[in-house]
Design a protein around this nucleic acid. Structure first.
Lengths: 164, 164
DNA sequence: TCTGAAACAGGCCAAGC
DNA sequence: GCTTGGCCTGTTTCAGA
């Protein structure tokens, strides 16, 4: 008899559930990446040293991959953001688009996706003209066609949820 | 620390270019959100106090909107990520989809976009079954149709470019 | 793993240029 | 706006439970 799929069941590999204290610490560090150990200790109800050990463990396990400042693109002159879906023009060629595009700084993110297109990029540029130039650069660098979706407004972003 | 909304803060329209030192500091804080003032000072070739003043100014101007830990979704049990494009079923109704979806924690980001669909969401769930449940929740909460694109791999993300 | 204490490093602020 | 310098807070390490 086959065991039925059970959404409750823990995923098979590469994932060890965090205990409640680690989840509290991770959530606090998402909310404030510069939170002091003293503040985390007060939040978690532990001593500073115990919290330090746990935070180091979250980092070494790869749960926390690093810390970053959240930058407002418009405040640094990137007035236009877009999703750019790309698909190779020649499917018989080896597909190394992510490597070919890695050095283009306007590309914030690159995902391979299942669906009509092969990859989805998130890009930030200063103007419509800059987007035109960027798209040409992407098309020639990776031999792809592009389909762009202009972002009008970001309602929220960077909300990283730590499930129970 | 999340930088609080501050009426003093310069709106993004009326963008004032950063000087070279501020760009260096912003890039360093993107690379390491917990970089010490002493490290930033060494990088920028300034005293610690001068750097402290500049970092605070970047925060109060809204260039740096806060700091956050970068979390690996798979390490916290979110094994499946997707873009979900949504469009209201009834265009005559007021469109408050972002507000209606704000409380759903699986939604990391919500953008309004120009194109075939009205909004693009980025979501993280633990399983295909959880995605099915999330999509139903989104459809009923916002009275929208959904079009999902499964993310197979994230090649890079969270690269925030500070242009010269 | 936790706590607590002591030594060290970093953040903060005022005064002067 | 930058620098120096003094004070205070946060971080690190270690011994002990």
């Amino acid at each position: 008899m086959t065991v039925p799929d059970d959404p409750q069941r823990a995923p098979a590999r590469g994932y060890v559930p965090l205990d409640e204290i680690d989840r509290v610490l991770a959530r606090e560090l998402v909310a404030d990446g510069r939170a002091t150990l003293a503040h985390l200790a007060a939040t978690a109800g532990l001593s500073v040293s115990a919290v330090q050990t746990r935070v180091r463990r979250l980092e070494s396990r790869g749960v926390v991959r690093g810390y970053t400042a959240r930058i407002d693109p418009e405040a640094v002159g990137s007035m236009l953001s877009a999703f750019v879906a790309i698909t190779p023009l020649d499917p018989s060629q080896p597909d190394d688009a992510p490597a070919r595009l890695e050095q283009i700084p306007e590309i914030e993110a690159c995902y391979s996706v299942a669906g009509e297109d092969n990859y989805m990029l998130l890009v930030h540029v200063e103007s419509a003209r800059a987007l035109e130039h960027l798209l040409q650069k992407i098309r020639t660098a990776a031999n792809v066609k592009t389909r762009s979706t202009i972002i009008l407004q970001k309602f929220y972003g960077d909300r990283r949820h730590i499930p129970d």
